[in-house]
């Protein structure tokens, strides 16, 4: 489903990604964990070319782009494969919850407003936000915003959903409701790549955990293996500081 080869990315003098490769199978749920600044988020952002890598290539489905040769048409084709849920939601401030979902359906996917509304309402029901569909994001709690963010990302029928620390900005009381929605999507067989500090999700939902440090993948494996028998000392150190409750 996803095949990433040798991705490198620098911002100025600091090298954020140092030749990262990763393959992800259809339906697989992969969590990316690691200390802040390890390059997890940047890696995730190269998957839809929000961050364009300096070297390497990304393939999702049958769309492949190599760094340095990316044409707008290819970038658009790559982005059509995935959708993203952001740490800070990034809901469109000037659109209601429902309009946040229907916007791309109407302007990108050329659906009629009626078709888009039907999809939007269905998804809002799915994430339990149908009561707030005409509210603007400023009137929603963090957890509600993120559930709309997930509904918006689901609406475009992506092959892969990318989650960039979806619960990190939330007050603890809202984390549960967002995780519930994510578990539900996982149960439906969606391919998910999740950057998270939420070790419960990593352990209970994901099929594979990838530990990043210093711009590279240190090790990866099934949750029970990685949590119970990490091979590398750095992984062990990192996990010893994380909470699992």
């Amino acid at each position: 489903m996803i095949s990433v080869r040798n991705i490198s990315k620098s911002y100025g003098a600091s090298k954020i990604l140092k030749g990262v490769s990763l393959d992800i199978k259809p339906g697989e749920i992969v969590t990316l964990i690691g200390p802040s600044g390890a390059g997890k988020t940047t890696f995730l952002r190269t998957l839809n070319w929000l961050a364009s890598p300096d070297e390497g290539s990304v393939r999702i489905g049958d769309v492949e782009i190599s760094a340095g040769h990316a044409r707008p048409r290819q970038i658009s084709a790559l982005r059509a494969q995935s959708s993203m849920v952001f740490q800070h939601y990034h809901l469109f401030h000037n659109k209601t919850a429902l309009e946040n979902i229907t916007e791309s359906l109407i302007v990108v996917h050329k659906k009629t407003r009626a078709e888009a509304d039907e999809i939007g309402i269905k998804l809002l029901i799915k994430v339990g936000m149908q009561d707030k569909m005409h509210e603007y994001p400023s009137r929603l709690s963090g957890g509600q915003k993120q559930r709309v963010g997930i509904a918006r990302a689901l609406a475009v029928e992506p092959k892969v959903m990318l989650f960039d620390e979806p619960t990190s900005s939330l007050d603890p009381e809202w984390v549960g409701e967002v995780l519930t929605v994510m578990n539900q999507i996982a149960d439906e067989g969606m391919t998910m790549v999740v950057v998270t500090h939420e070790m419960r999700f990593a352990r209970n939902v994901s099929k594979r955990i990838v530990f990043f440090d210093d711009g590279a993948i240190v090790e990866s494996g099934a949750p029970e293996q990685l949590f119970q028998n990490p091979v590398h000392e750095r992984t062990r150190q990192f996990l010893s500081k994380e909470r699992f409750d």
């Binding site: 839809n48 929000l50 982005r79 993203m84 469109f92 916007e103 791309s104 302007v107 990108v108 918006r152």
Partner: peptide, 26 residues
């Protein structure tokens, strides 16, 4: 906010759509 642009791009909107539908109104 730069996040508004990113949300547009992640949903495969192009720059013109991002400008006219999201950025300019705000």
């Amino acid at each position: 906010d730069a996040g508004q642009w990113e949300a547009c791009y992640s949903l495969n909107m192009n720059t013109r759509q991002a400008v006219t539908r999201i950025v300019i109104p705000q």
